[in-house]
């Protein structure tokens, strides 16, 4: 049998709202999301919240608990005192839809502006080869579950709405770093992109993104600062700039890496000048005039079946293995 504890939950929508008080039963082993569900089941059937996996892997239940951006499903009730009031509010940085649900489309817009992974021309999917130590750094950033807690806590947009246009936020800095460090990404203008289009310079490395990341990605130390240093290489370091001019490294670099034609879905990547001396190439085309199929261009999710269109389960006379007799 649990105990009754005091909760305050923000209720309302874009036209306004306030924090309301509730006393809810709490049992051993429960998390904040369980309490929200109990509230829905008992006192407030119309309380809106977003959730999916309850395991800290989908990034849906991002809320602010006692003022701190957290995942509702990963915040244990045992971390609070028995008599402590727990305040649950929606993410502040994004427009509210209703109660604890916010409109996070800002993040999806920034995601679409970021130029996609661009393998070197002539390397087809399935031919990618890379060494583990080369791809390790990028892999850390793949842990991101897109809960947008870092985007929410970053004071650049949290406290200054007007910066939203110029600033992409920590989640997209780790995306830029992931691709710039990727051994098979052929774009060499990601640093310029991060500086000119993503607003990397707005970050003053106060590390709140790292503090709130539920996946414990070292956003600042491993992505933002390395990207800042890479931008310095390109833009602010007078010695490197001079060396590049004298030894004409620009042209040397572009020979080893073919430029990609990817500009991101919205084409915002077009805004950054390409440093490559070679002209952009069209996508690789095979002898029959057709491109390799990737899942991005398919009407359905996932790769195409190598066996053609088939429905499962297959008829018994068409399978090529012995199906064990069923026992009954």
């Amino acid at each position: 049998m649990g105990t009754k504890r005091h909760f305050r939950v923000w209720r309302g929508d874009e036209s306004g709202g306030d924090i309301q008080d509730y006393d809810v039963e709490v049992n051993e082993g429960e998390v904040v999301l369980d309490i929200i569900h109990r509230l829905q089941a008992t006192q407030t059937p119309d309380l809106a919240c977003r959730w999916n996996c309850k395991a800290g892997k989908c990034g849906s239940c991002s809320v602010e608990i006692n003022g701190k951006p957290r995942l509702g499903c990963m915040t244990r009730m045992s971390t609070f005192e028995e008599d402590e009031t727990v305040t649950i509010t929606p993410l502040r940085t994004f427009p509210v839809i209703r109660d604890l649900v916010t409109d996070v489309s800002f993040n999806y817009e920034k995601a679409r502006e970021t130029p996609a992974f661009a393998p070197p021309a002539g390397v087809a999917p399935g031919q990618y080869r890379m060494q583990q130590i080369d791809v390790e750094r990028s892999q850390e950033f793949r842990k991101c579950i897109e809960c947008f807690l870092c985007q929410n806590t970053c004071h650049v947009v949290r406290d200054h709405e007007e910066n939203k246009e110029a600033f992409s936020g920590p989640r997209y800095f780790i995306r830029a770093a992931e691709l710039d460090m990727h051994p098979l990404d052929a774009r060499d203008d990601r640093k310029q992109y991060a500086q000119a289009s993503q607003g990397l310079g707005y970050c003053n490395i106060t590390k709140c993104c790292t503090e709130v990341c539920p996946e414990h990605i070292k956003i600042t130390d491993n992505a933002i600062i390395p990207m800042k240093e890479r931008v310095v290489d390109r833009r602010y370091d007078p010695l490197v700039w001079l060396g590049r001019k004298i030894f004409r490294r620009d042209e040397l670099e572009s020979e080893s890496m073919a430029p990609s034609v990817s500009t991101g879905v919205t084409g915002a990547g077009d805004a950054t000048p390409f440093s490559s001396a070679r002209l952009a190439e069209p996508p690789p085309v095979r002898d029959d005039g057709k491109m390799d199929v990737t899942e991005v261009t398919l009407p359905v999710q996932g790769g195409p079946s190598p066996f053609g269109d088939q429905e499962f389960p297959l008829p018994l006379d068409q399978i090529s293995y012995h199906k064990p007799e069923s026992r009954d």
């Binding site: 709202g17 003022g67 509210v96 409109d103 489309s105 999806y108 817009e109």
Partner: peptide, 26 residues
């Protein structure tokens, strides 16, 4: 992606949740 048309930079601006406290950190 789940972006509704009409919402975003070009569409009507939605407002943030009206929370009066500057911070709720305890």
């Amino acid at each position: 992606t789940a972006t509704r048309p009409g919402v975003g930079p070009s569409g009507p601006q939605r407002s943030r949740a009206a929370i009066t406290a500057k911070t709720l950190r305890t």
